[in-house]
Write a protein that binds this DNA or RNA. Structure first.
Lengths: 229, 229
DNA sequence: GATTTATATAGTACAAAGTACGATAATGAT
DNA sequence: ATCATTATCGTACTTTGTACTATATAAATC
């Protein structure tokens, strides 16, 4: 009954983080406790604290491991497609880890992958001819849209999972909410995942709008040296 | 030392919720514990459970009380200005209650104020001539942008509050992040709250884009009867 | 006014979770 | 073979939500 002590190299910081991700993915954020994580790793709770100062720091690392998954835009690529791909990647990854946004919101120390992502996006904008000010606007607007959309994806999904359609109908009272009823109807009969199309549509809008913020000098016609640092 | 029992009408559900909001506003979400709330209300912890089944339900009510604060678009107003005002209101209210987004994310039962808000927005879109499908796109895109922007507002502010500029500079390593350095510089020297302008800019973009989704029939020229249910 | 009933407030106590502190065992160094 | 280092772990304390039960107060009835 008394398990022998785990071998000396059972753990690494990496394994702790990966285990935490697995637990959160499989059983949700509220199931990610130090004790559960220890069990999952075949180890006793206090062993984890050799690799992580406290749970907050574990969550910091967890969030940054999600940022690592985002597609990094290539500085020499075409800005519009690079940003579009990064945006799609962010939405995909975030919806695959529905717990991620909740943790991101409470982080106060941006991790290296997060910072690298910012740098890469800003570099793309810079090379595309955005001034610092234009880039500030463009990035804030695009990120707001992308993370906001992912937020809605996640919230919608969690409602669907936790609350049955019948339960919802009861709570909503369709007599007083005819438009909402229409909309629900529309979504029920819509194709597989109707928000995918909506996301693309809004992404085009955002990129179109952002494009207008560029300096009107067509930087692509300039010699690349003049554009470089 | 032993306080006498609190008088019989010390509490109401309303007072519990208002007290919870005050606590969260003043000391943050993590300070909102049942015990702290009880002290704040001059009452013992278990008394709260006479008005609220559990803490989850309290959070449900808390979130819905925030939705109540959002400006309700007027069905007979001009769609663009109504939606713009609602959007500004959402951002303002959410940034005034930085804890709200975190709770919203984990709710699975939309409250009445939430539903009424949806209904009002959809009604405005309907009267403006949006088909159900167009309204679905428009609403999802606009909400993604607005909540996403508020999310960034909140995250940025919490980083600023919890992490000193010096601390940040140390963690960021500006040698490897020149663009990020430029951007930080720009924000430091920018006017009072530079994101306000960015929000308005993106809002115009979103509303412009959404406008293109309308049916091209100019519904405003139709007799209102033909447009009514 | 006295008695009964309903209910709002509260006391006690337990479980779950983070983690401080110190012990112990496994590895490498001398 | 001894020692130093350090990865793993046991114990125990604190904080939090809250189940269960008790009690006091207001309302209702006689």
């Amino acid at each position: 009954m008394t398990t022998p002590r785990a071998p000396r190299n059972s753990l690494t910081r990496e394994r702790v983080i990966v285990g935490a991700r697995a637990l959160a993915d499989a059983r949700g954020l509220e199931a990610l406790t130090i004790r559960a994580l220890a069990t999952h790793l075949g180890v006793k709770p206090m062993s984890i604290y050799h690799y992580v100062a406290n749970k907050e720091q574990l969550l910091d690392a967890l969030v940054d491991s999600v940022f690592e998954e985002f597609h990094l835009p290539q500085p020499d690529g075409e800005w519009r497609s690079e940003l579009a791909n990064r945006s799609r990647s962010v939405r995909d990854v975030v919806t695959q880890h529905p717990w991620a946004l909740a943790i991101m919101e409470t982080r106060t120390h941006p991790g290296p992958a997060n910072l690298n992502g910012h740098e890469a996006v800003l570099e793309v904008l810079h090379r595309a001819g955005f001034t610092v000010e234009a880039a500030a606007h463009a990035y804030a607007i695009l990120d707001a849209y992308v993370f906001g959309f992912a937020l809605q994806d996640v919230m919608l999904r969690s409602i669907q999972l936790d609350t049955s359609a019948a339960e919802l109908r009861e709570e909503i009272d369709l007599r007083n909410h005819p438009r909402l009823g229409e909309m629900a109807e529309f979504y029920v009969h819509a194709s597989s995942y109707p928000l995918d199309g909506t996301f693309e549509l809004g992404l085009e809008l955002a990129l179109d709008g952002i494009g207008q913020l560029r300096t009107h000098i067509d930087t692509e016609s300039l010699p690349s040296k003049a554009d470089a640092e």
